[in-house]
Design a protein around this nucleic acid. Structure first.
Lengths: 332, 332
DNA sequence: GTTAACCTAGTGATCGTTCACAAAAGCCGT
DNA sequence: ACGGCTTTTGTGAACGATCACTAGGTTAAC
C-alpha cells in the first residue's frame, strides 16, 4: 500500500480511503492518480490485514448434513472432511455459466491470496496454463486428471469393462453408450473405456450418444434408436441418464431387461427402488472427494500425493440387466 | 496474548512458542504456568493475526458446478451464491453424527470468531440457547424456523394441502403419510400440514409412518399396510421416499396409480422419468438456500429480514396419481 | 476582510501474532 | 570455579491495513 501511496504521491491513508469508499470524498485529480498507481503496480488489498484491523471476517459458515446427499453433494462432503482433517477450512463457491467463466473465477481466486489451493469439482476451461504462473495457489482439477493417473484409472476404467463383459456373457453383442457431459473427465473416461472394451472383446457398438448427464438425454438416445438397430444393451453415463433410457425403452413398448438391458452409474439412493431396479456402479463418492482434496493438499505442500489404489467402485447387478433377447436380428 | 504472558509471568514470545509447538522446547514448569494462564483467561489465539504474519491462510477453495446437483446440493448452491452476492465468502463444513454433535461444532464455530454467522442446513439440537450468548456469530437454522415464519408457511404448508385436495377431488378418502426425518423442520412442517388438511377436509388418515427420507422407509410403509386398509393415496416425504413407496406397491401387485396413488416432493431430476412419472412438488431449492442465507446475513447485520412471499413451490401432477379405484372398501 | 464551517489530506498508533536476534540460564569437563 | 556449549527466555520490529486525530485549503456568510 505504501508503494502505491509513494507512486501516486499521496499518503497511505489516502490510498486506504480510495479503496474503502471507492474514491468518494477524494478530489477528482487525486482519485485518478491513485487509480493509476493501483493499476500500474497491479496492487490488490490484503483482506487478511483488513480483517485484522476491522475485526470482521466477511465469512459465513454453512453446516451441511454429513450424509444423505447425492451427486456432487457427496463428493463435496468427502472433500470438505478431508480438508478439515488436514487442518484446512474449505470455502465453497458455486459458479454457474460455462467452463470459461469458471476458469476465470478460478484464476481470480488462485491469484487473490485468499486461499492456498483450489479444487474444482466442475470442468474448467484452463487448457493453456495448467500450473498457474507462480506464487499463489495450486489448482487441481476434479474427478481425476487427464493423464489417467491418480484416481482415474482404477476408479473409472474398470467398471465399464466389467459391465460390458458381464452383458456380453449374457449374450449381448451390440451396445449403445449414452455419454455424460464431455467437459467432465469422468464422462470422457467412461466413454474411452467403453470404446476400448467393445473393441477388445470384438463386440459391436451402435455408437456413442452425446449427452449432458440429463435423463432426457437418455430417453432421447433410446427413442432415436432406429428400428432393428440390434442394440440390446445401453451403458448410460449415470443413473439419471439410465432412468431416462429405461423410460424411453418403455415408451417404445420394450421391456427392460426383456428386450433391452440398461446400466447406470453412481448407485443413486433411488436406483435400487426403481422398477426395474437399476444395475449400476456403486461409487464411494465421499472417498473420491476426499482423495481429490488430499491430492490438492499434497500439491499445496509441494509433495507428490501417494495413491492408495484400492478400488472405489463396485458393479451392482440388479433387475435392469438380463440375458440378451433370443429373437431380434444381429448378434449370433 | 500479552495478558496471558503477564498472568503466567513470562514474555509474549514464550506464550507464542507454547501455542505453536504445543509446549515443545519449554521447561516443564513454564509450560504448566502458561497452560494454566491460558485456561484461566479462556484465551484463544486469533487465526487472522496469525495468517497475517505467516502469510498462510489455511484455507482451500472448492469450486462447485452451478447446476445439476440435487438434494442439499441445490440448496447449498443457492446459499453460497447469495453469500457471495452480499460480499461474503461461504465456508462449508459437513458434520456427520447426530444432531448433538452438530450443535457442538456449531457452538464452537460461532465462538471462534472465524466466521460472522453460521447457517445450518441440517438439524442441530440446540434447543436451549437459540441466540448464542452474545458477541460472536449469529445462528440461523435450516429450512425455515419453527415459528412458522419466514420461508416456512408459504414454502411448506400449502403444497401438501394442494396435493391432498387434488387427490380428494379424484375420490380419494383414506390417506397415508410417510414422513421424513422429524429432525428437519421441513419434515415436521409437511407432517403438520398433512394432519391439518386431512382434518379440515374431513378425510381419513391411516396414520403417519415415521421415516428417515430413505427409499426403504417408503417401501416398508407400503409393505406394512394391512390388507384392506382402505388407503388409496400415499403422501411421501420426498421423491426418494415416493420411489420406495411405488416400489412397495408394485411388489404387492398393486398398480400405481390404478390401485394406489403416490406423491413425492422436490421434483428430483429423475422424478419425471420414473414409471409411472412421479407427481411431486417442484421446489426452487436454490431460492430456498439463497433466502436462508439472506436471513442469516440480515441477522448478522442486526436487521430483520424482509420476507418476499412469492411461492417457491408448485405441484406437478404426473402419472403416479389418478382417480381413486372404484372397488375397495371404505370411502363412498 | 475576517471568521466559521466544511472538505480533503496527512501523521502516528494500533489490531494480535510471529520472526530475527540477543541475552540469560543450565550443563559439562577440566 | 571458569570458559564453551546448548537450551530456554526475552526484546523489539514487522506483517498490511484501518482508526482517531490533526493540519491545511476552500467556500460561504457576515
Amino acid at each position: 500500500m505504501k508503494e502505491v501511496a509513494r507512486a501516486a504521491g499521496v499518503s497511505h491513508q489516502t490510498v486506504s480511503r480510495y479503496l474503502r469508499f471507492e474514491g468518494a470524498g477524494l478530489k477528482e485529480a487525486t482519485r485518478e492518480r491513485v487509480a493509476a498507481a493501483v493499476e500500474e503496480l497491479g496492487y490488490r488489498p490484503d483482506p487478511i490485514a483488513r480483517s485484522m484491523r476491522t475485526r470482521r471476517t466477511g465469512r459465513l459458515a454453512v453446516l451441511l448434513p454429513g450424509v444423505g446427499a447425492s451427486g456432487p453433494g457427496r463428493t463435496l462432503v468427502g472433500a470438505v472432511a478431508a480438508a478439515r482433517a488436514a487442518g484446512y477450512a474449505a470455502e465453497v463457491l458455486s459458479v454457474g455459466g460455462g467452463a470459461r467463466e469458471r476458469a476465470e473465477r478460478l484464476a481470480e481466486l488462485a491469484g487473490s491470496g485468499q486461499v492456498e489451493g483450489v479444487l474444482s469439482l466442475a470442468p474448467t476451461a484452463l487448457g493453456a496454463a495448467p500450473p498457474p504462473p507462480g506464487e499463489a495457489a495450486v489448482v487441481v482439477s476434479a474427478d481425476y486428471d487427464d493423464r489417467m493417473r491418480g484416481i482415474g484409472a482404477p476408479a473409472d476404467g474398470a467398471p465399464v469393462a466389467d459391465l460390458v463383459a458381464g452383458l456380453a456373457a449374457g449374450g449381448h453383442r451390440r451396445f449403445l453408450h449414452v455419454a455424460g457431459d464431455q467437459g467432465f473427465a469422468s464422462a470422457r473416461g467412461r466413454r474411452r473405456a467403453y470404446l476400448e472394451i467393445v473393441e477388445r472383446l470384438g463386440l459391436e457398438s451402435h455408437g456413442v450418444a452425446d449427452g449432458d448427464w440429463s435423463a432426457e438425454s437418455g430417453r432421447a438416445a433410446v427413442r432415436d434408436l432406429p428400428e432393428g438397430s440390434g442394440v440390446t444393451a445401453v451403458i448410460a453415463g449415470n443413473d439419471v441418464v439410465a432412468a431416462g433410457a429405461v423410460r424411453g425403452a418403455l415408451e417404445r413398448g420394450w421391456s427392460v431387461p426383456g428386450d433391452i438391458s440398461v446400466t447406470g452409474w453412481d448407485d443413486d439412493p433411488v436406483a435400487a427402488y426403481l422398477s426395474p431396479a437399476l444395475t449400476t456402479v456403486a461409487v464411494d463418492l465421499e472417498r473420491v472427494g476426499a482423495r481429490a482434496m488430499e491430492r490438492l493438499i499434497a500439491a499445496v505442500h509441494g509433495r507428490e500425493a501417494e495413491e492408495p489404489c484400492e478400488p472405489l467402485t463396485r458393479v451392482v447387478w440388479r433387475e435392469s440387466t438380463g440375458p440378451a433377447p433370443r429373437v431380434r436380428r444381429g448378434g449370433e
